[in-house]
Design a protein around this nucleic acid. Structure first.
Length: 574
RNA sequence: GUACCCAUGGCUCAAUUGGAUAGAGCACCUGACUACGGAUCAGGAGGUUGCAGGUUCGAUUCCUGCUGGGUACGCCA
């Protein structure tokens, strides 16, 4: 299956229009087909006749009727119907549908094309500042980034996922000096990140009222950046502890990277990139700092070298782009960060253009997570740690599992609770438009019913259970030996939903919205639940029974694959 | 002051990127033969899509202005 059905139909209708209206071929433009919102409007529809009324100088309805009576229908189309002002409603052929479903069943990719074959993408997500525990605000970049990573990989893109840790900034000066004065060696060994955070907060507080302290912090950073062995050793310890801690949380979250390179990785490339900018004549000195004017792009100027000679984050990001291009030659680099960095990336991208870099650079930003009453920050101390959210989610799920699956071995209950609890948290985040601002509430993050991860996992587990029962009751029969048939309308609707899986995966990738995939999966699960609840299958007559079991099997595979692309597990029993 | 984003039933969110009667979940109300797993299903009630204009055959979607909220704007990342 080389392409999704909507693309296939769009290509057909494009050439068909050009054939039927051959005298006006240059004026026709792009004609496409989209899925219909309501069953009365067919399975797919074409809305272009209204637009074409002007260029063809005919009534839209007339155009549609001319087209429908003149065109030769492809095998997959049963009927074309003109409706309303000039919509063309397309109904798929049942026989063709059954065959397409059969071919999906044989396809391990469930019809999803490898549209990204041969294309390399660097994805930059996660990227927390280290030496502090992750809080709930860190969930989004990791979660959205990881889902987009998986979706692109599945579409055949060569993805290089890099966790661009904040490990070289000013906060290290603050932390190191704080450690020297208030660090507790014992606690540092037991809870390194908690202790480092405590030390950071205390030291940060002091910078606000004590300018000598602030200068001393800057000195620590200078020592670090100039390679002072003792300071560097401290930095290495902090970094190692932080990464070990991160890896542990990442394992719980089921996120992983191809590489974990911090800003420090590029520390020797900062000076060269500024020199390159200078050589290109893009810089000037302003108040002692080296800056790039971006008036042409209607952006504020960007500082690439501070007046004290130090480099800042714009410099690091520029050096990082150059380095990634040298190393991976990607077609695209995607950054997944919160909305506050929009201007920053616009500036960085603009400077890259000035340097002649043509690689596509995308900034995927998402809305900040806030608490009902306020934004939170490490400095303010009103944070909810990511791990305590995960703990709470697992605990809640465990209570539920113990109640509903009391006969399950306790170890399995724990595993299920882990999958369901973490799934609930991740799904709640992924299922909304990334760009909307998220107000964190426990109720939302831990939702187990309605449009939630557990609802989908539950649907999956029910199918797994049905499959087992079928095998026990009919050990000798192989459902795949029976043809698919659609005796109830819900079965046909399910089949069409299943074959649209590829459309939703592509949409999620192209629009950078995992929510496109969650929406699809939720609708599929809803449809399946309706089917399950209202149509008997183990008790259905032979043939119908096998067809329905096959349909169930396909729904299960789509759910499993889809949830996997979102980073959710699908236990066989819940 | 400038730029970007958001505003949809009581609450949380959708709307196939300009299409037909704006869809779900939560909460609320009424139902489901001891049922292939009730974490479910069937149904009900709930809307002038922030306001005012404009473009279009057609606007929740695009444009302009306003209101309210968020974020960012030279040496933090």
């Amino acid at each position: 299956m080389a392409q999704a059905l909507n693309d296939l139909l769009s290509e057909w209708i494009q050439t068909a229009f050009e054939t039927v209206f051959s005298q006006d071929v240059e004026q026709i433009g792009r004609v496409t087909v989209v899925a219909s919102a309501r069953p009365e409007h067919g399975d797919y529809q074409c809305n272009d006749c209204m637009r074409l009324a002007k260029v063809l100088k005919q009534a839209p309805r007339q155009i549609a009727e001319t087209f429908v009576s003149a065109v030769e229908k492809p095998d997959c189309v049963r009927a074309l119907e003109v409706a309303g002002p000039g919509f063309i409603n397309i109904s798929l052929d049942d026989q063709w549908l059954a065959e397409w479903m059969a071919s999906l069943a044989d396809d391990e990719r469930l019809g999803v094309p490898r549209q990204g074959e041969g294309t390399t993408i660097v994805m930059d997500y996660g990227s927390p500042n280290i030496t502090k525990p992750l809080h709930i605000g860190h969930l989004r970049s990791h979660n959205i980034g990881s889902a987009l990573d998986r979706v692109h990989r599945f579409l055949g893109y060569h993805v290089v996922a890099d966790n661009h840790l904040g490990d070289w900034g000013t906060q290290f000066g603050i932390t190191i000096l704080g450690y020297r004065h208030f660090g507790d060696k014992q606690k540092m060994r037991e809870y390194p990140l908690e202790e480092l955070e405590r030390v950071y907060v205390k030291s940060y507080e002091k910078t606000k009222e004590d300018s000598e302290w602030l200068d001393a912090c800057r000195q620590e950073l200078v020592k670090l950046q100039s390679g002072d062995p003792e300071t560097l050793a401290l930095w290495e310890d902090f970094t190692r502890w932080s990464i070990e801690e991160l890896e542990r949380v990442y394992a719980r979250l089921n996120v992983s990277f191809d590489m974990v390179r911090g800003e420090s990785h590029y520390r020797n490339k900062l000076k060269p990139i500024v020199e390159r900018l200078e050589a290109e004549g893009l810089t000037r000195i302003s108040e002692g700092a080296t800056v790039v004017d971006l008036e042409e792009e209607k952006l504020p100027l960007a500082i690439v070298r501070k007046s004290d000679g130090g480099f800042n984050y714009a410099t690091t990001d520029l050096a990082t782009v150059a380095s990634r291009i040298d190393e991976f030659s990607p077609e695209r680099i995607i950054y997944i960060t919160d909305e506050r960095q929009q201007l920053h990336f616009k500036q960085v991208f603009a400077i890259c253009r000035r340097l002649g870099i043509t690689t596509r650079l995308d900034h995927v930003w998402f809305g900040l997570m806030r608490l009902p009453d306020a934004t939170f920050s490490t400095r303010e101390g009103n944070v909810i740690k990511l791990e305590s959210l995960l703990d709470k989610a697992e605990e809640l799920a465990l209570n539920l599992v113990r109640e509903s699956s009391s006969d399950m071995p306790s170890e399995q209950q724990q595993d299920v609770a882990r999958a369901v609890g973490i799934g609930a948290v991740k799904y709640a985040d992924l299922s909304q438009n990334p760009q909307s601002l998220v107000t964190f509430t426990w109720e939302k993050a831990l939702a187990l019913d309605g449009n939630s991860g557990p609802y989908l996992q539950y649907a999956y587990a029910r199918i797994a259970s049905v499959n087992d029962k079928y095998k026990v009751q009919f050990p000798e029969t192989d459902p795949s030996a029976y043809p698919l048939q659609f005796t109830e309308s819900i079965e046909r609707a399910l089949a069409i939903k299943i074959l649209r899986f590829s459309e939703s995966v592509i949409l999620a990738a192209d629009s950078y919205k995992p929510s496109a995939l969650t929406d699809y999966l939720y609708e599929l699960a809803q449809m399946y639940s309706t089917f399950y609840q209202n149509v008997p299958f183990l008790k259905a007559p032979e043939g119908v029974r096998e067809s329905r079991v096959r349909l169930c099997g396909l729904v299960a595979r789509v759910l499993k694959q889809g949830l996997d692309l979102l980073g959710l597990e699908t236990p066989e029993r819940i």
